[in-house]
Design a protein around this nucleic acid. Structure first.
Lengths: 161, 161
DNA sequence: CTAAATAGTACCGATGAAGTCCTATTTGTT
DNA sequence: AACAAATAGGACTTCATCGGTACTATTTAG
């Protein structure tokens, strides 16, 4: 369906929330209740983001999460890579010709590559897609301003819409 | 994982093949054997493409498929839409506030929309993605060279398989 | 008439998404 | 020191979809 997973949605929500309160330390619970995201799931996602170096964590009471780097340096591509794994427009993109040494005929990756007429052009398209996703940063997502009525603090954004 | 499904890969292969032989009528069997795509699966895909008006079909012996419109008018977005369904960057993109009338509390779509801080900026990003996918046409995929026909083109492949 | 093709649809197994739960470990507070 | 609040790291379950198969019906050239 070419959709982001819901986990990525949640990750974006959490990261944007952190970006809007750059100094504050947000706990998973705060974010989960505020945006009605299932808490245990959000916790898993925040763990992933932390492991990838997109967020910093602080344990203990009053602990929580903060952006590890400025919002402008976190791209959509980074977020997707952290929670969904690598972007792979087609099967062969990340193909590495690893073959079972005992059976050279069995190709473990995409065996279409040998006959596939679209492989190399699609590679180029894939590159452009990655470029596109890498160009969208958290700052872009935060900037456009008050999207939804709910959050009062969103009103701080200049020139709504 | 943000990947195209294999069905889309197969659809592209088939469509590119047709584009390279604009007049000829290619049967599903031809394409399947040539590119080692499972025949029954490819048949299903070609049915989808035909239903969506991307390909024309001719029944009976010597029948097969042809592009319904010039390659330059078939976009990657069209192909994805035909075989995978609508592109949906996030859950709320196609959100329609349809609610079960008997249970107003149960929202059938994405209920995050009411509190989601990223909804409208993501909408914009979604628009750009669609724009990108719509800008890539079959002609672009075919153009980079008569990649097919021989393994010669594939020699440049970084895969070295 | 027959064989070769598409049309439509139902079906199945495997994979991954979405979500839960449990057990550490860290750390501020009392 | 004890406790509670938070993260860390997993395993686990459920369910939808993907990838693929199969069957029947319909069209049509020879």
């Amino acid at each position: 369906m070419l959709a982001l997973t819901r986990k990525t949605d949640y990750a974006l929500i959490a990261l944007v929330h952190m970006a809007q309160d750059p100094e504050g330390c947000c706990s998973a619970r705060e974010i989960a209740t505020r945006y009605r995201v299932p808490l245990p799931l959000l916790m898993n996602i925040l763990k992933l983001l932390t492991r990838r170096g997109l967020a910093k964590s602080a344990r203990g009471p009053r602990g929580g999460y903060t952006l590890a780097v400025p919002a402008g340096e976190i791209s959509l591509y980074d977020v997707i890579g952290a929670v969904e794994g690598p972007v792979q427009l087609v099967q062969c993109v990340e193909y590495k010709p690893r073959q079972a040494p005992d059976d050279p005929l069995k190709v473990l990756g995409c065996d279409l590559v040998t006959v596939c007429p679209v492989h190399s052009p699609i590679q180029a398209i894939h590159g452009k897609l990655v470029e596109f996703l890498s160009g969208v940063t958290l700052a872009d997502v935060v900037a456009p301003g008050g999207c939804c009525k709910s959050a009062g603090q969103l009103a701080q954004s200049p020139l709504g819409a």
